[in-house]
Design a binder for these strands. Structure first.
Lengths: 345, 345
DNA sequence: CTGTTAGCGCCTTCAC
DNA sequence: GTGAAGGCGCTAACAG
């Protein structure tokens, strides 16, 4: 059996609560130096390790944060997770990671589970379209922060990026290069991130005087498979797009596969701007022009926000933090007319 | 306050232990159907959620697994982590993820921390060169499984890949293509994975009748920066390598950067086989010939092993599981003479 | 400055 | 079949 406060107390001839005060309370003032030193020595001698489970139970504080994300193997979320874990660790918190696989039922289960286990707070990249678990958290006064995705009809602490303006800018950039058939490979339409990008995309088209074409908005999930199928569909259109804006680290993988199969030459026959965070993008056959995220910053800010909330329970205000994406111009976009010329050589 | 067993008991006019038996014990036999139904109805009505913290404390069983890895944002570990988390979840366990950043001190701290929090078992990709925490775990009879890396002088449950033979085969493959100046960009030399790959590399050279050249064994960490510096060094040698074998998802990123800067043409001027698990590799300027890992399988097997250990505490045997890496032939390797000819066109 | 008391929510043993 | 008692390890109140 591990040594307990009782063991130390017995050996020192004092009461367990005295030992507790010395080893866990920072009200240093109230205890005589003599006993303090004696207790600390005995604790060291017996290699006392506090039973954190008992403390958590007693204190109603687990020093644990729950992180709920769709998929830790996606570099977007793994990058954020790393930052969240490190910030948490520095603040003395452990991190429980949960993959929902974009399944809201699983998300609901996970939240309940984590609450029952007494996490001090949660960071959630929600699967969206259901917020009852968040209402429940609020009612129970359990702090949480949304990351990447949020609810427009439900104010909550959140960290997200400039989805609308980045998509808007992407369209304008492509239009400056004379593109008018610009497709958007969006991903899951339910996600706020995607809705905002779509809005930015549509407003971008409008600002450039380009008519919307519903055919050019494709895809319904974030998988490589969906990216592949959607891209094949787009490339098979009577009037295929000359430029592509893609959402998500996986979709672009599928898109590249389809493009390879169709033997489309990048960027001459197709310009691409991709939302992606992979480190390999500069070294691709056609180095992708990308919109990437400040992943460390996002994670860090989410933890800061959550810890603030945990330590100021009476504070009812919510904070929304928008971070700036990074546009990296590389070789996957080029001017349309030039391209066509190249094509005819 | 959340409803407790007591609340239900009071409302039903029974003793809390009865409620406990109904809601948490599977000895279904001993309770009358009438009270059972009544209790279940009241539990539902009051939305009873067990305080898992109290249960864990009482039962000395947290239904939690600790995962200690160098870096969750590395796709090798994030791929494994995803699999581990999903397998754990299916078995009713939560997963606490910890990044050591290849720092053994942090690893030691994390293990102590997780033990104090009462995790039921650990999965560890160790930073190596210190096993005292593992001895401690064994003494405390806390199950653990090593993943990817293990200790040759210390038998323990472990899941790893065929490092030696895969490196051996890589050298033979390159030698068949007439390469003799084969460099090994290894990563952290302390890691068992790397030592085995080095052994395979050296034995491969020997089997091919190629003399070892210490200059061709380069690198000392798994970072992109180190891969970059080491590659620059190799390319600056009086007699530079004609082929490269690289370890780890990050090193190759740095290597590619250096290669680009040196304006080296792949594969004509340099053949590469890379240990990497990134999904983008097929779409690179020069699609990399890779050795990748069955990440899902590795995670799943580690969890299976750990759960077996957790459920059979008296079983003192250890199990080592070796999984097969996947060799994917792509375009980053070619025959040396052919290359030289191409070069002279 | 330190001891005493009580209890967090749950489960297990022992009664009846 | 169900109730009563006791305690996991720790800490917060209240004494003195």
């Amino acid at each position: 059996m591990a040594t307990t406060l009782r063991d130390i107390a017995r050996k020192a001839g004092v009461h367990p609560s005295t030992v507790s005060r010395i080893l866990h309370n920072n009200q240093t003032v109230k205890i005589s130096d003599a006993t303090r030193k004696r207790i600390l020595a005995i604790a060291k001698e017996l290699d006392y390790q506090p039973n954190e489970l008992a403390r958590a139970f007693r204190l109603r504080k687990t020093q644990t944060i729950g992180l709920i994300i769709p998929d830790i193997s996606n570099s977007f979320f793994s990058g954020i997770s790393r930052s969240i874990e490190m910030s948490s660790y520095n603040a003395g918190y452990n991190l429980v990671v949960c993959n929902t696989n974009e399944n809201i039922e699983k998300e609901l289960k996970y939240v309940r589970n984590l609450v029952n286990r007494g996490v001090d707070g949660l960071i959630i990249a929600t699967c969206q379209n259901n917020e009852k678990h968040l209402l429940d958290l609020r009612e129970k006064k359990i702090p949480f922060v949304l990351i990447d995705r949020y609810f427009s009809n439900f104010k909550a602490n959140a960290v997200f990026s400039d989805n609308k303006s980045s998509a808007f800018d992407a369209v304008k950039t492509l239009h400056k290069l004379k593109h008018e058939r610009i497709a958007f490979l969006r991903g899951r339409p339910e996600i706020s991130t995607i809705q905002l990008r779509l809005q930015g995309y549509l407003e971008g088209l409008a600002a450039c005087g380009i008519a919307q074409d519903p055919e050019l908005i494709a895809g319904k999930s974030f998988t490589a498979e969906d990216g592949y199928e959607a891209t094949k569909m787009l490339l098979s259109l009577a009037s295929p797009p000359t430029a592509l804006l893609t959402s998500g680290n996986r979709i672009i993988i599928g898109a590249l596969k389809a493009i390879k199969e169709f033997n489309i030459k990048l960027p001459d026959e197709l310009s691409i701007i991709a939302y992606t965070d992979d480190l390999f993008t500069p070294f691709l056959a056609c180095p992708l022009t990308t919109i990437s995220h400040p992943l460390s910053e996002m994670g860090q800010k989410a933890v800061d926000l959550l810890l603030h909330e945990i330590n100021n329970t009476n504070d009812n205000a919510t904070t929304q933090i928008e971070v700036k994406t990074i546009f990296s111009m590389r070789e996957s976009i080029c001017e349309l007319t030039t391209c066509r010329k190249t094509e005819n050589v």
